[in-house]
């Protein structure tokens, strides 16, 4: 008995390990999906690598910063709200996907961006959110938003990002002196805080978190091919 006991112990541990791994991943429909390792834009519309899951339950949450930063028409059948952090790599990877969706769906898709800087996980996240909000006070939020995501890898490793963001402010053509005053203002901080409060009221735990018509899109669905299907389904439902 003593000779086979270690083998029994090993088999029990193996069964427990495989069983728990299977139990915890059984809701995952297929191979690992990493935002940033997305299906190529050339993939045919509607093509799916994994089945589209149901969206989460509807949740109105508390209001965020007002007015919000939006793209598209308010009458659009699909309202997408993203909680993002400019320093977060998956958010940076999601940025071109969302751009692609906006191009494809045009006036049928309305996009809102909410600040959700992950402090202290990301050392420059709050500074980046402040830079975007300060640019927003001069009507150039989306220009700064795009620049921050497009150049995320360039600034996230910098020690002092203040001068980098001031350079971006100059590049998008806003009044840099006013930007410098606004970036640390109560108004800017209040807007970020208000968006964060809205995120927490909706149960946002990480970024990017995306809601479509008030229902959370599962993280693994934030790929171009699957998000396209999810948005299309929402548009069809509104007809």
């Amino acid at each position: 008995m003593k000779r086979i006991l270690p083998f029994i112990i090993i088999l029990i541990v193996l069964a427990l390990a495989l069983g728990s791994a299977w139990y915890l991943t059984r809701s995952v429909p297929s191979a690992p999906t990493v935002v940033g390792q997305q299906a190529s834009p050339q993939q045919s519309p509607g093509a799916q690598t994994t089945p589209v899951q149901q969206l989460g339950p509807f949740n109105a949450g508390i209001p965020g910063a007002d007015p919000p930063h939006t793209h598209g028409q308010a009458s659009a059948p699909a309202h997408l709200e993203e909680f993002g952090d400019f320093e977060c790599p998956p958010c940076g990877a999601f940025h071109p996907i969302l751009k692609q969706m906006e191009q494809e769906f045009g006036d049928k898709l309305h996009v809102t961006f909410r600040e959700f800087p992950l402090v202290p996980t990301h050392q420059h996240a709050l500074a980046a959110a402040s830079a975007a909000e300060a640019a927003g006070l001069q009507g150039k939020f989306w220009e700064m938003h795009d620049l921050l995501y497009d150049r995320q890898t360039a600034w996230k490793t910098q020690f002092d990002v203040r001068s980098v963001f001031e350079g971006y402010a100059k590049e998008i053509g806003i009044d840099v002196e006013r930007y410098k005053r606004d970036v640390g203002s109560d108004l800017v901080q209040q807007r970020i805080f208000q968006d964060g409060k809205r995120g927490h009221s909706l149960g946002v735990k990480g970024t990017p978190t995306v809601f479509l018509n008030g229902r959370e899109v599962p993280f693994e669905q934030l790929q171009a091919d699957q998000l396209r299907v999810v948005i299309q389904r929402e548009i069809e439902a509104k007809k």
Partner: peptide, 15 residues
């Protein structure tokens, strides 16, 4: 496999 660690969270810098 579930995609959770590749999402940035407040508690983890693993993403």
């Amino acid at each position: 496999l579930t995609g959770e660690t590749v999402r940035c969270t407040i508690l983890s810098g693993c993403s």
